[in-house]
Nucleic acid binder design. Structure first.
Lengths: 195, 195
DNA sequence: TGTTTAACATACTAATTAGTATTTAAAAAT
DNA sequence: ATTTTTAAATACTAATTAGTATGTTAAACA
């Protein structure tokens, strides 16, 4: 990686960390700069303004991370019920960077930025749509192999599962991670009913 | 209502509206004052600082509203499955003040303020706890009348339902209100499985 | 009726904000 | 080697922020 590309990545990585914990608007450019060796000149050389940096962060940091954790494990699903549940278990309990107190970076940004900025909304919708598509496709494969009832609507299931995740991430910010296990248990009951 | 009490209520009401749409930190005191006839002197006479106003808003505006819509309809439940579903239908589709784009005021505040301010977290946790207790009690009554299976864990169901609500409110901010109907359908499938 | 206190009103401050203007150094190209 | 362009460093600005200091008026009380 060239030195310039490295500077850019440093900005996005540190911005991601701070915005995850503090929120987008509460994280100032000066705050990002103070915790890196990057100067204001470098920041505005790489990004036209704060929002362009924020969008780059979504597309270049959050999107790849969520694809690896949430989408990839569901491609070529043989056992959708268990694989969806396991994927959820992994993201809630096994990703070390994510802390209950701070919730999910993408969910946080949807909450804060969707109503305020159309570009953010579009970029974030792309994330959740990809995830829902992966779940939907997984359920469809389960229908093909008769492990899922024929009358199940895969898109509806995907919507319900993603909403459940967003919600438990929200709840966990106030109530702590103990609710994750409760959620996983009831998610299993919901998923079993699809068979 | 005395003139002073009226001033206080005006501040809280307008703050609630603005914070609902913009977020807590993004709503400045000057912003609240500019859209009322209240002056800065009056504001700081009634509230020691912005956070005290925010807490008063949660306790005096949000809490009573949520109690009436979410808790009261579940007291003395004869048919928990349908009553919980109907309560959810009401809050998602029938409360005119709430718009999909802006989500739920309480959920928004949990997302934004829980990790940043312990007092906010405690005040907000009181809201969700009350709601969960009402759902739990409703399920318990259903177990007593044998309409709910004996092995169902009422606290778990309450957690799952509240998380689902938070999540669909989050999703609706980016995806619009059409996802509400999908959620309600799948919530019904989940609830039916409790019988 | 006079005095006190509650309820504001106005003008200010110090800190922080996103963003700009200008300069400088390091790479790349010629 | 010299020019040019990329990448960055430094110093600034205008706007906005929460909160304060100091006044003023209206209501309650003695």
């Amino acid at each position: 990686m060239s030195k310039a590309a490295n500077t850019r990545t440093m900005i996005l990585t540190k911005a991601f960390e701070l915005i995850y914990k503090q929120g987008y608007q509460a994280t100032s450019i000066d705050n990002i700069l103070a915790t890196t060796q990057v100067t204001k000149g470098a920041f505005f050389y790489h990004f036209k303004n704060k929002d362009e940096m924020g969008l780059a962060m979504i597309n270049e940091i959050i999107y790849p991370g969520m694809y690896a954790t949430l989408v990839k494990p569901l491609l070529d699903s043989k056992d959708p019920i268990n694989e969806i549940h396991e994927m959820m278990r992994n993201v809630l309990l096994k990703v070390p960077f994510l802390r209950a107190k701070y919730g999910c970076p993408a969910v946080n940004l949807i909450e804060e930025m969707s109503p305020l900025n159309e570009d953010f909304k579009i970029a974030l919708l792309k994330l959740t749509d990809q995830w829902q598509d992966a779940i939907k496709e997984s359920i469809n494969q389960g229908k093909a192999s008769k492990e899922i009832r024929a009358d199940v609507n895969p898109g509806y299931v995907a919507c319900f599962v993603v909403a459940g995740y967003s919600g438990i991430r929200n709840m966990g910010k106030a109530a702590g991670s103990s609710c994750y296990n409760i959620y996983l248990q009831e998610l299993k009951n919901y998923l079993k009913q699809l068979a």
